[in-house]
Nucleic acid binder design. Structure first.
Length: 894
RNA sequence: GGGCGCAUGGCUCAGUUGGUUAGAGCGCUACACUCACAUUGUAGAGGUCGAGGGUUCGAAUCCUUCUGCGCCCACCA
């Protein structure tokens, strides 16, 4: 009689509806002055990316927002795309050609880049397909890639503008160098991790006293401490603090650098911490950022001892071509042998690690390009301080500001091939630098045609920081095919909200704010929502290397995308980390199935001819019964709360509200209540309308199942994705009905409780007498006897007007509203009953005493909210009545 | 060294501006597959809200100190 299976099968629906949405272009957004724009730019995943739980969380949140605002009638645009991810992608392709026994150098730059593009064509859209599996409603027709021709123009434009403004400069500085990737990295790309290492104490002998020391008996050497002994080969000084009494007399003296036999001076600088190590520090200006500063200040020699790949170079003498860590061991051996090693102490230290390959980075002196950040940071700090951009949760504001206020210049050149090549040209003749978007014919200084382009490419983030406007074809404002009109940028920018993870704040969020203000003269987004990190059940971050990954695609396969989405969101408190296990997804699957079966039930019992009516009109024309008034009220109350929660980025709250409403109110109570009279018009209309509206409201969370059901309903419109978000009908919110059903339900629950307690078989009908404790309950019970009888499985229901315990009573129970007596031919355990009553009496007395004490406190009466005081007084009155009744009962039982 | 987060029933967590008897999911116990759903239903057990101190008529909630766990930042040779 009906063709709906009793289990929801996501596999049969998800791909089908996604295809449908795409075919109908339901996700495309256009400039529409009649509508409010709502735009989110996706944090572009790496082209090398495959969907992990972090993506799943990040994109589910964005999809919920986009679908919600689309239904609210805004012009919702979710701008998708991918990031060329310079280092990561180059690494992947290098690995792939390594299978053919090739290195990128074998291919040469051009051929290698060709291979990367080939790779991108083949695998670069994997993540896009996976996002579609998730249900992401991006406007795919706009998909951008940071290496697109037009996008690249924007990148070069920005470089040139900043250069011309004097904000980009080139210079030799100590930067983070990854020997494995063989490139410079920004500070953000080289996060510090703690390591267990050693502090090595080395003896540097004095030159003057070198020979005759043993006779004089003075200290023949100064001891310096270092964690990287191999860098001693590049030492050009030893520094002490000028205030340090121990060393004052040695300042200006000369030492002989062991193994190398270089003469180095002892210099004084207040930078030296007297407390650390021996208070004397070896200075390696080419291999340590602090030493670099000292080197500049004291005009020291800069000796680079390392090849870019981490092996030592010709300046390392005998240690040439050894790997840095191998050299460390050999050097230590040699130092030890020659008596220059004083001691070795275990030492916790932290070192930068390449964020792509996790190799320990080397502070390395090299010529790089930098962006001066302070001038860019200033307005970006202001924008957040003034509240033009808001972080959710708020606490990230401080993290952002702290970083921005201490911002360092940004190293943007990378010594790799895959990326935007610097628009910088050098003249072979006069060495002048020409910076130009398009390759210049000749040197801007001397006019020579003998020029060549810088080999370096730009940091990937130097392109991603333009994402919120470069995706709209800034600065031309027009896509090459003219498919994206110039007005788009104006209409959709600034975007509404950026959704991302905390570790991206510095990399991307902060820089987008700076770029937006600099190039668009406006903030790129109004809100920043920072969600938590996805962890496993033990709290460890999910990562491939730990092997604790839960693959979202497997979850989709097993439970469905809706289940994945719903579960993920319902356990993610705002901004808190998420602890996941596979079992957690059962909740979402079960909920989907519940919705499925409720819809199935409604459809099985639906007469489509009855329901074509406007809900409000229908409501006005009818004298609706309490049950329908209640469920309408509950729906609209929930809707109101859900909208509010979504507006405040409280996604889990909205999810849980919807879950509770649908499962425990609509299914458990409402559908059960109307079952016998389900064909009545009022029930037909209300159950249908609520189901239909509920589907819309849960749709942002569970797009697939809601579409599947929607399509089976006698619906209007082609897809649920573009149905309007229901309006809150305030006039249907009926607190009185809610209160009254609470009375009915608690009476029914109490009876059920009673039955269970004395183990009445479920099929056994019993007789129950009810003595209402509040006036409102009397009529209510009277008018809803049938309902109570059915849900509590009663033979007969008597309404008492006296609290006298009726004859043949087996057991009783009381709740806020009534005392309930159950008549059943079982055995009455008088003692047990007495104990129960006694206990109840004592509880009530205690509660009454507590409340009376509060009421006798003049401070309370004076200061507390009058509503609270009144409530308290009412409660005392109620308690008094209950106590009176209980006392009477005790007497009777004696 | 600086900053942030977390600590609530066996487990994982909610608890918005302080206000009745602190909630949910999972797990557990008992009962129930004729009636949309066993991916289910009904009922139940289980918490002195990490510790001390303070503010307040009133604190899981605000302040403070401490303890434990986790994270971020920093030029700790």
């Amino acid at each position: 009689m009906n063709d709906i299976p009793s289990r929801y099968n996501p596999k049969e629906t998800e791909d089908k509806w996604y295809k449908f949405w795409e075919e109908k272009n339901l996700f495309s957004a256009k400039v529409n002055p009649a509508k409010k724009p709502f735009c989110i730019v996706i944090p572009p995943p790496n082209v090398t990316g495959i969907l992990h739980m972090g993506h799943a969380l990040n994109n589910t949140i964005q999809d919920i927002l986009i679908r919600y605002h689309r239904m609210k009638g805004e012009e919702a645009l979710w701008m998708p795309g991918t990031d060329h991810a310079g280092i990561a992608t180059q690494n992947v392709v290098e690995k792939s050609i390594a299978k053919e026994g090739l290195k990128r150098q074998d291919l040469g730059r051009e051929k290698f880049i060709e291979r990367v593009w080939q790779w991108k064509e083949q695998y670069g859209s994997t993540i896009i397909h996976q996002l579609k599996k998730l249900g992401a409603s991006c406007d795919w027709s706009r998909t951008r890639f940071t290496m697109d021709e037009e996008y690249s123009k924007a990148v070069l434009e920005v470089f040139v503008r900043l250069y011309e403004k004097g904000l980009i400069y080139r210079g030799s500085y100590i930067i983070n160098w990854c020997p494995r990737c063989s490139t410079a990295l920004s500070d953000e790309e080289a996060p510090h991790r703690d390591l267990q290492g050693n502090l090595y104490y080395l003896r540097y002998p004095f030159k003057e006293e070198f020979r005759g020391l043993s006779q004089k008996g003075t200290v023949p050497y100064i001891i310096v401490a270092t964690t990287r002994p191999e860098t001693m080969l590049g030492d050009t000084a030893v520094a002490v603090n000028p205030k340090d009494k121990r060393y004052k007399k040695y300042i200006g003296k000369t030492l002989i650098l062991p193994l190398v036999n270089r003469e180095i001076k002892i210099i004084a600088d207040s930078m030296v911490d007297m407390q650390f190590g021996t208070g004397a520090v070896k200075v390696t200006p080419a291999h340590d950022p602090n030493d670099f500063l000292l080197g500049k200040k004291h005009n020291l020699e800069f000796i680079n001892i390392m090849h870019p790949d981490g092996r030592l170079n010709e300046n390392a003498g005998d240690y040439k071509d050894m790997d840095r860590f191998e050299a460390r061991e050999v050097i230590l051996e040699d130092l030890k042998e020659k008596g220059f090693l004083e001691k070795v102490q275990p030492h916790r230290l932290s070192a930068g690690h390449c964020y792509r390959c996790h190799t320990i980075i080397e502070p390395y002196l090299s010529e790089q390009w930098f962006v001066k950040m302070k001038p860019l940071a200033k307005p970006a700090i202001e924008a957040v301080k003034k509240g033009k951009i808001k972080f959710y949760p708020k606490r990230w504001t401080k993290v952002y500001l702290n970083w921005m206020e201490n911002i360092q210049d940004w190293c943007i050149s990378r010594q790799i091939w895959w990326g935007h090549r610097l628009p910088v040209y050098y003249c072979k003749k006069c060495k002048a630098v020409t910076v130009s978007k398009i390759k210049p014919e000749k040197c801007s200084a001397c006019g020579s045609g003998d020029i060549y382009q810088d080999e370096d490419v730009l940091d990937t983030w130097f392109s991603s920081w333009l994402w919120p406007f470069a995706t709209f074809y800034w600065p031309q404002g027009l896509s090459p095919q003219g498919t994206v009109p110039a007005e788009d940028l104006k209409y959709f920018y600034p975007t509404a909200v950026l959704v991302t993870a905390p570790e991206i704040i510095f990399f991307w969020v902060a820089r987008m704010i700076m770029a937006g203000l600099e190039f668009m003269a406006d903030i790129p987004f109004r809100d920043v929502y920072i969600h938590g990190t996805v962890r496993d059940i033990e709290g460890k971050k999910m990562s491939k290397s730990l092997g604790n990954i839960i693959d979202p695609l497997e979850i989709i396969d097993e439970y469905g995308a809706d289940a994945l989405r719903f579960s993920l969101i319902s356990i993610t408190a705002q901004g808190q980390d998420v602890y996941l296990s596979r079992e957690r997804f059962q909740q979402g699957r079960n909920f989907a199935n519940k919705i499925w079966n409720a819809a199935r039930f409604v459809l099985m019992n639906l007469d489509p001819t009855q329901i074509r009516v406007d809900l409000c009109e229908f409501f006005k024309s009818q004298d609706l019964d309490i049950v329908n008034r209640w469920i309408l009220s509950r729906f609209y109350t929930t809707l109101k709360q859900v909208s509010k929660a979504l507006d405040n980025y409280r996604f889990n709250e909205a999810a849980n509200l919807l879950y509770g409403f649908f499962w425990h109110e609509f299914c458990d109570w409402y559908l059960e209540l109307i079952k016998p009279e389900i064909k009545e018009r009022r029930n037909q209309v209300i159950m249908y309308k609520i189901l239909e509206k509920f589907l819309r409201v849960i749709h942002p969370y569970m797009p697939f199942i809601t579409e599947e059901i929607w399509q089976r309903l006698p619906h209007m419109g082609e897809s649920i994705t573009i149905q309007p978000w229901p309006h809150v009908q305030e006039q249907l919110i009926d607190k009185k009905a809610e209160k009254e059903t609470d009375i009915l339900f608690s009476i029914i629950k109490s009876i059920r409780n009673l039955r269970a307690e004395i183990e009445v078989r479920p099929e056994q009908k019993v007789v129950v007498s009810v003595y209402p404790q509040i006036k409102a309950a009397v009529n209510l019970i009277q008018n809803n006897q049938g309902l109570i009888r059915r849900l509590a499985n009663l033979e007969e229901l008597n309404l008492l007007d006296s609290s006298r315990r009726p004859q043949k009573t087996t057991s009783d129970i009381e709740n806020k509203y009534a005392v309930i007596y159950l008549h059943f031919s079982g055995i009455i355990d008088i003692a047990q009953e007495q104990a129960k009553i006694k206990q109840g009496l004592q509880d009530q007395l205690k509660r009454k005493a507590a409340k009376e004490k509060l009421m006798q406190n003049p401070e309370f009466v004076k200061k507390a909210n009058s509503e609270v005081v009144k409530k308290m007084a009412d409660e005392i009155k109620e308690l008094e009545e209950k106590i009176k009744r209980l006392e009477k009962l005790t007497d009777e039982l004696h």
